[in-house]
Amino acid sequence: MLKDITLGQYFPGNSFIHRLDPRTKLMCTIVYIAALFVAKSYVTYGILLLMLCLSVAVSRIKPSALLKGLKPLALIIVFTAILNLFYIKGGKELVSFWVLSITTEGIKTALFMVFRIMMLITGTFLLTYTTTPMALTDGLEIILNPLKKIHVPVHEFAMMMSIALRFIPTLIEEADKITNAQKARGADFETGKLTERAKALLPLLVPLFVSAFRRADELAIAMESRCYHGGEGRTRMKKLSMKASDFITIFASLVFLTGIIVLVQFGF
């Protein structure tokens, strides 16, 4: 069950997108998200969807892997769709009973919202699938570096994030192990009422937390014994470098965003 979580999972590869600098990919993702929120019509959504499909094709990531990531969010997507379907009034009324009614505008908005969420998620998944967590946090740290001037602990945040990402698979493995050990003692995680099932999680969560704290403690000692004392004066083994292709990609994405904005301004 826990193995389905795909957060921060990297799919090794050597495609054009894999080779881009993480900063480029981060910026393109931000531009893409901005464009998603600007888009208002079938045309603009269509263009964005085409762009997304193209990027996925270039990355050589299996579309099924991306879609699998949507599964845990199915509930939110359905909820958004239903809410929009009934709340947005406008256009022709199609069905109505009691206080509920469905209008053409409602259907349209619901459709757009669903696509927006799904494209948002797949787009960001594409980023994490093609970039190692380490590269991602390194990129983020450099992008946010200017914030150090106003005393934002950028390095600490980046370090926390990379440690968190690094330990997700470890914790999942640990959780699996503990689940099995408790099952071997007859613990039942699958049947029973909701309250019973929540209670049944205790034998899993307590050891998991205990071991997470122990691991954190050990990691802190290991880091300190290797003289880690924060980001001040710390150098990197792998320096990130922007290549010509990176600048071209960023430029292209900005042109793309401008294009979308212009299209929206002209009423498309």
Partner: peptide
């Protein structure tokens, strides 16, 4: 219950 399995490092399952 009939086949008791003690895992490796079982102390991490105490809760």
């Amino acid at each position: 219950f009939k086949v008791g399995l003690v895992f490796q490092y079982p102390e991490y399952q105490l809760f």
